[in-house]
Design a protein around this nucleic acid. Structure first.
Lengths: 161, 161
DNA sequence: CGCACAATGATGACGTATCATCAAAATAAA
DNA sequence: TTTATTTTGATGATACGTCATCATTGTGCG
């Protein structure tokens, strides 16, 4: 992200800041892209589908109320709704009415869903470890935590999250 | 991103590693989302459209060969093609045949495109500065550069970029 | 030259993300 | 209790990104 030449009334970045910003963007988009590619290459899951299946497979009985799932994912409600429709059609989850709350929805992972997530997880975790984790020092890991702790609240303040 | 309980043959992360990974994901997705939201709120641009317009507005005559643009963006060719179709329809760029290479394409920013990018840039740059840059120490900025320098080549090695 | 191959773009299909809107049910307020 | 508000989820429209495929043009090699 750079500055258009005709917008220089706004102070942009020093050389160091610019390098840091570009590195952040490259790292961020590179990892996102790598995760997508690796999952698609080694399994039949998209990154989003993976995220849906993980909390389900971790739950006691393989099911969660939809709103619980939403809390895990931090998605828009309609995003989850659309995603569940597609995943239900592909036989990875099924929807059941909630006994407690007639508005509610229980999402349950199917046997096929379990097979798919169990097949996808190992290579995914290995990739994250080898590409990312194994290359960071403890100081760098700490820096990530500190940065997130400072930036995220700021984004929330600005109503951008 | 967590490990499904039944896939524990793969070593996952220590507490510190897990915290760093979650921070990275939150930071990465948070900034991406904030950029999208802020641009859409304060201008009529998506993040992708912004990226297309920046190198065009910075060029000498407001135009670039399509393959030059591709090098700036590091996108798939079809992604740029689709995006240019939409942007052309909205009057922000126009396509011209290249005199040198009959396969080639020259992409030119329109007057309206200039107005839009010039209107969008200041608030965008301010947001990035206030949400991100102003909250980082020089050590943290350096850490970002170091991390990217180690991780990105690794991703390239793994053919995931 | 003539032919295989690479480079450049366009297109249609598909999956995905967001927004606006709607409906139904639960909860709070009157 | 009756009404207003909130919560939960679904849907259709639109925009976006990727893939597979195609057409055209340029390049290199025989």
């Amino acid at each position: 992200m750079q500055t258009p030449t005709s917008a220089n009334s706004v102070p942009w970045l020093t050389e160091h800041e610019d390098a840091a910003w570009r590195s952040f963007l490259a790292l961020s988009r590179g990892m996102e892209r790598a995760i997508d590619r690796q999952l698609q290459r080694d399994s039949e899951l998209s990154s989003s589908e993976y995220h849906v299946l993980v909390p389900l497979s971790e739950s006691q009985d393989g099911s969660l109320p939809s709103r619980e799932l939403l809390r895990h994912l931090d998605w828009e409600r309609s995003r989850l709704s659309h995603m569940l429709s597609r995943m239900e059609k592909r036989g990875m989850v099924c929807r059941k009415p909630s006994p407690q709350d007639a508005r509610g929805l229980i999402v349950e992972i199917t046997e096929h869903g379990r097979q798919v997530i169990n097949g996808a997880a190992p290579s995914h975790l290995t990739m994250v470890r080898e590409a990312f984790m194994d290359n960071l020092s403890t100081d760098e890991m700490q820096a990530l935590v500190n940065m997130a702790d400072k930036v995220i609240p700021r984004l929330e303040n600005m109503n951008l999250i």
